[in-house]
Amino acid sequence: MLSYVPYAFGGAMLIASFAFAGHYMGRNAVAHSLVEEEPQVATSSPVSTLIQKGSLMPSDATLDLVNLPIIREQEVVSTSKGDYIEPEPDVPEAPEAVVKHEPEKIEKRLALTPPVWKMESTFKLKRNEKQKVVAQRRIRMAEENCLAKAVYFEARSESELGQLAVAKVVLNRVKDPNFPKTICGVVYQGSDRRNSCQFSFACDGVADEVKNKAAWENSKRVAQKAIDGDQTIRVIGAATNYHADYVRPRWAKEMRKLIKIGRHIFYSDS
């Protein structure tokens, strides 16, 4: 009888182990079936919108283009680009004071920009002044050229004083009401008729061709000095006529003789 005890004990243990294993496998099967029956939930990483990325907006904020706050510093008056109004510093004031003084300040700032018509009139004035300056310069150059020709063809062989005296006669005639009012008018008066002009070179039938370059440059310099009011020729005073000492014009008897410089004798009609 004792010889069967170990076999009986071993059999009991084997039965117990099978029972335990069956119970454990049953629990795992139930748990597995429960997991499979649960609905699957889609998972994804957090996504940020392009507007929120890299900005200081909160993660739950949305961009509303209609209700964006207006920044005062970015306001520009629509009349022109130059009418930018600087924002006033935020100083706490009573509502009455803000309403009372702010329109007056804005009006003063806007008044600093001139109206369009005034700016256009300024540009036109500048253009007119420029045209006047250019015209005056051209007239001056033409007058100097005419006077230089009178000096060159009438007195280039004379001393500088004698050349200045001839130029002074031309300028005195411009001031005299009996002669033309311009230098060129005086120099070429009567040149439309042969041998009827005031200065012989102007109507002698020979072209006014400058051949001596050095004498021509000197004549232009003398003409400029005379126009600028050089006082070295004050000795001839108000002389309006002259002639070479080798001729005897009829008009000389009716005028007052002033001075002889080189080969020229100068006269005044008063």
Rank of each mutant, 00 (worst) to 15 (best):
E120S: 00
R248N: 11
A21K: 10
Y242L: 14
S78W: 05
D90R: 08
S44T: 15
T182R: 10
S17K: 04
Y7F: 06
V77W: 05
V170F: 14
M119S: 05
E254A: 01
K257F: 14
A239S: 15
L112A: 07
R72I: 11
A42S: 14
L147P: 13
E254S: 04
H101R: 11
N67G: 14
P114N: 04
I183W: 15
I265Q: 07
V66K: 14
V41E: 15
P89T: 08
A155E: 03
D83F: 00
I261F: 05
V30R: 12
R263P: 09
I259R: 01
P103Q: 03
T122G: 02
M1R: 02
V98M: 06
S44Y: 13
V210K: 01
M141A: 10
P6Y: 02
V187R: 06
S191H: 08
V169G: 00
A142V: 04
K108S: 05
V247D: 09
P58I: 04
P114Q: 03
K257E: 10
I233L: 11
T113Y: 00
Y246G: 02
L2A: 10
A94H: 09
K124R: 03
P95M: 01
A19E: 08
V186N: 06
K149V: 08
L68E: 14
R109D: 03
Y267V: 00
A29K: 02
L68H: 11
D269E: 12
D192S: 14
P95A: 01
V170Y: 14
G229N: 11
I106W: 02
K213R: 07
K132E: 07
A214C: 03
F201Q: 03
D64W: 09
M255F: 04
A19L: 05
E96I: 07
I70Q: 05
E88C: 05
D230A: 13
W251A: 07
N28C: 15
E217W: 00
D64T: 13
A239T: 12
V98Y: 05
C146T: 03
T113S: 02
S59V: 02
M57S: 08
L110A: 04
P114S: 06
L258I: 04
D90P: 02
L14T: 00
N218L: 11
N195M: 13
R248F: 09
E36F: 09
V41C: 10
P92F: 06
V91Q: 08
L161Q: 13
V98E: 04
M1T: 08
L2I: 05
A167H: 14
V99L: 08
D204W: 04
E102H: 01
E144V: 03
K81G: 07
A31Q: 15
S80R: 05
S219V: 09
K124M: 03
E158N: 10
F123V: 06
G185R: 15
L164A: 06
S78C: 10
G54A: 02
P58H: 09
I106K: 07
A8T: 09
E217L: 07
M57W: 08
K181I: 10
E93T: 04
G22F: 02
S17W: 00
F9Y: 07
G205D: 06
R137Y: 11
I15E: 00
E209K: 13
V169E: 00
A150L: 13
S219T: 06
